[in-house]
């Protein structure tokens, strides 16, 4: 598979600080993978190492089996946006892209095509310095698409975008993945990821905490079941005998922990107790994410304390 991203024990240290700590994972084609972590978790450093901009202290990042800086004319294989402000403000959108395209043997027709694709055709010959953040993000993505690459990497692509811009990026990424490309985007916002990505890689303090799908994550952190019944006392007795812990809400609903929704339904039916509502509740992904990344932070603090 030529478009797989593989990280093997990737590490970056700055003096005593370890920004990225033996990070290993794979990113597969055909889905949108989210690279998630709080600010300062090492996401950008990791992506910059994948793309040869930063040198790893140890380990290796491979794209399609090669280090990025071993690829000749890499824009044909990998497209990346690391920084929305990474164009010379004095150049026009067209000349900015034309310079990049020329270095990879890509013609001017393709430059016009990508400008059209991202909706910047009308301002192609305007200076980038006058562009809004949304326009600059689009320009960045146009640059990433120049060589029609099989791998697309985006660092915090929705930062500072308005609703329309965010929706545009989401649908663009979805269609790129649907075309079979490998799509990796980083973000510090779980809420954003939940609607955009299929898989998540969560890092905290430079370490991989979780490599899972969004659906799996939701299931795993199912917390309790909310049950509504007119005969609360009887159902409480039945459920307690099943081994559940039952508490009552102010509205008279039962909050059940320890038994899943089908078991509750079956038990109520067996006891001929009517059930008017049965709602499995999971922690919001945001909660889960905060919990996970906090654990990473605490683990870190303890580990460093031990060393002293």
């Amino acid at each position: 598979m030529g478009s797989m991203i593989e990280l093997k024990e990737l590490t970056k240290r700055y003096g005593d600080t370890t920004a990225v700590d033996r990070l290993s994972f794979e990113v597969r084609p055909g889905v949108v993978t989210g690279f998630l972590g709080p600010n300062g978790a090492g996401k950008s450093t990791t992506m910059r190492m994948m793309l040869g901009l930063h040198r790893p202290t140890a380990g290796v990042a491979l794209i399609g089996g090669r280090r990025y800086d071993e690829i000749r004319h890499p824009l044909h294989e990998v497209g990346a946006v690391l920084d929305a402000d990474a164009a010379h403000p004095g150049r026009s959108a067209f000349t900015h892209l034309a310079c990049l395209a020329r270095s990879n043997g890509i013609g001017k027709a393709r430059v016009n095509a990508v400008l059209d694709q991202v909706g910047l055709a009308a301002v192609a010959h305007k200076r980038v310095g006058g562009f809004s953040l949304g326009m600059r993000q689009r320009l960045g993505i146009a640059g990433a698409l120049l060589g029609d690459p099989a791998v697309v990497l985006l660092d915090e692509p929705v930062n500072g975008l308005d609703a329309a811009g965010i929706r545009w990026i989401r649908s663009t990424l979805r269609s790129l993945a649907a075309e079979g490309r490998t799509v990796l985007l980083s973000s510090h916002l779980m809420s954003e990821m939940a609607v955009t990505v299929d898989r998540v890689l969560i890092i905290g303090k430079g370490r991989l905490i979780e490599d899972t799908s969004v659906a799996e994550m939701r299931d795993r952190f199912e917390r309790d079941v909310l049950v509504r019944t007119p005969r609360t006392a009887e159902l409480t007795g039945v459920l307690t005998r099943l081994g559940a812990t039952v508490t009552r809400t102010g509205d008279g609903d039962l909050v059940t922990v320890g038994v899943d929704a089908p078991a509750i339904g079956d038990a109520a039916a067996a006891a001929s107790i009517p059930v008017h509502g049965l709602t499995p509740r999971s922690a919001t992904l945001e909660d889960v994410y905060l919990e996970m990344t906090n654990e990473a932070a605490e683990y870190r603090a303890v580990a460093e304390g031990d060393r002293r």
Binding site: L51, G52, L53, Y68, D69, I71, P74, L75, V78, A80, L82, D83, D85, A86, A87, H88, P89, H96, L100, S103, N104, G143
Partner: peptide, 19 residues
């Protein structure tokens, strides 16, 4: 220096990563 000052060194190195 124009590339470092405007951060367009990033895209430049992505296009030609062999320093």
């Amino acid at each position: 220096t124009s590339e470092y000052t405007t951060r367009s060194i990033g895209p430049a190195l992505l296009a030609v990563p062999q320093r």
